[in-house]
Design a protein around this nucleic acid. Structure first.
Lengths: 103, 103
DNA sequence: TAATCATATAATAATTCAATTATATACTAA
DNA sequence: TTAGTATATAATTGAATTATTATATGATTA
């Protein structure tokens, strides 16, 4: 696969509201799946599937802590992804609403 | 539509090899449809449909000169699109191959 | 150990999207 | 006016993608 095609495939992952929102949330801090589900008001399997794609593309890191799986941004290696996320609008409000009692 | 959704929709347009290639070609100089068709080895209707989407999104300008329609980049208004294209690999070789005898 | 919680995976259904094929428009030149 | 060139549009097909529903796994706690 040539450079342009790889770049297009990576950008395609950003071209989805849910995934772009997940990555933008992760700019603030690492989050577990249930945080993401709650902040974005999406179903758990939906979040899980998107996270799998983001992980496969190398956009996020995954770490397990007890029963929770935390995801964090890992986009510094891909300059154009980082450039886009740097320019994405803040989603702090979505995180502020979270009731951090579970994870 | 909120900001994130609009951003995702714009990025979705970049998440296609053909469209990303067209925009990258246009970084070099304005081109007519037949140049793009020849450089990317795609069909004319295919090029035309993609150009329509890029125009609808405001990523390109269109100007008619005699029987040709020239397209040029118009991405300076959208910072994250510009940022991506600035980081896209050059496609000069594809243009160098063109036999500029028609338009 | 049973119940619950957090997450992942698989299967499916619905939607979106890209490329092709066929056709139309519009301009140019003989 | 006819033929040819450049481009656009419409209809169709096939493939890819998203979200849901259902189920599985694995860890935790009562």
């Amino acid at each position: 696969m040539d450079q342009i095609e790889e770049m297009a495939d990576n950008l395609k992952l950003l071209g989805d509201k849910t995934r772009l929102s997940i990555l933008t949330l992760l700019k603030e801090k690492e989050l577990c799946v249930c945080d993401i589900v709650e902040a974005l008001e999406i179903s758990q399997p939906n979040a899980s599937q998107h996270l799998r794609k983001l992980k496969a593309a190398g956009f996020v890191n995954e770490t397990k802590k007890a029963q929770w799986v935390y995801y964090s941004l890992k986009t510094d290696e891909i300059p154009y992804i980082k450039a886009v996320l740097d320019l994405a609008p803040s989603m702090q409000e979505k995180l502020a609403q979270l009731q951090n009692n579970h994870c």
